[in-house]
Amino acid sequence: MTALLVPYESLNTLQRQQVEAIEVHPDQIRFCGDIHGALHTLLSKPGPGVKGFALLADNVPVAFLLLKRPPVLPAWADEHSATLHALQVDQRVQGKGYGKACLQALPEAARLAWPEIRGLELSVDADNESAIGLYAKYGFVDSGEAYKGRIGYERRMGMRF
């Protein structure tokens, strides 16, 4: 599998249309939202605090994610970090390692976007043991803290550079 995580702004017109066609499995929407919400977050108020990335497999977008920094960093995050949001792998290609490819490429992509950051953070549903395990496998450490999120308790996970 050849996959490359690239900034959304570097995509051509066809690739941007293909990003818009990413479909999230209905059971995952409550955790990561859908592509239209993620793109709205990215494109409605462009600014330095939000960046989008697409994972390309053979030059076709198969996954999408957002990274955030101040001034749109969530209250739970450290100001020196970037936070991961809306990680979405197209349901038609799930199970092929694309989520893992995103997580492997994420630290380098984040540092290229914001050289000053010292780490990455994310928030994950406290009951989502498979996601917590996956994030841990790729270097995220559970902070041990849980807080009430929009759909239940969330756990903070982070990695330092």
Rank of each mutant, 00 (worst) to 15 (best):
L73F: 11
L122E: 05
V50A: 10
P48K: 10
Q18N: 10
S123W: 03
A126E: 15
V141N: 06
G144Y: 07
D34A: 04
V60R: 13
H25S: 10
D34L: 01
F53N: 04
T83R: 02
H80I: 02
Q88D: 02
L5Q: 04
R92C: 09
G33L: 09
S123E: 15
A105W: 01
Y135G: 05
A109E: 08
S10T: 15
A146E: 15
I22Q: 05
L5I: 06
S10H: 11
G33S: 07
D58V: 09
Q15H: 10
H80P: 00
V24N: 00
A3L: 11
L4R: 08
E116D: 14
N128Y: 07
Q17P: 01
Y98F: 15
L106F: 04
R92S: 15
H36C: 12
C32Y: 12
P74F: 13
V89E: 01
F64L: 05
A82M: 09
L4Y: 04
A101W: 00
T13G: 07
L14G: 02
I132W: 01
R111S: 13
V62D: 04
A82Q: 03
I117W: 09
A146N: 10
Q104W: 02
S10P: 01
S123F: 02
A146Q: 14
L11R: 07
A21H: 11
V62G: 03
P48F: 06
G49W: 06
G49A: 12
E79Y: 06
L134V: 14
Y135F: 15
A77C: 07
D34T: 02
S44L: 11
T41R: 11
G119E: 08
L11G: 11
L39H: 05
I132M: 12
I132L: 13
L122S: 05
Q15F: 12
S123D: 14
D27S: 14
L55G: 07
D127K: 09
G97H: 03
K51S: 13
Y8F: 15
N59W: 07
N59A: 14
R30V: 13
Q17R: 11
A21W: 00
A38C: 09
I35T: 15
L120S: 05
K68F: 13
G52K: 03
A105I: 04
K96S: 10
A126I: 09
A3V: 05
H85L: 07
Y135T: 01
D78H: 07
I35H: 00
I35W: 00
T83I: 03
I117S: 07
G95C: 09
N12K: 08
S130R: 14
A3S: 15
L122Q: 03
A136E: 09
Q94V: 14
L56V: 09
A101D: 12
P74V: 10
L11M: 13
H25Q: 09
K68S: 12
Y138Q: 01
Y8M: 10
L42K: 06
D125K: 01
L103Q: 00
S81W: 11
L55H: 03
G37V: 06
C102G: 02
Y8Q: 09
R16F: 08
P70W: 01
L43C: 13
K100V: 08
G47P: 03
R69V: 15
E145M: 13
L42A: 09
L84W: 02
K68D: 04
G47C: 08
E20W: 02
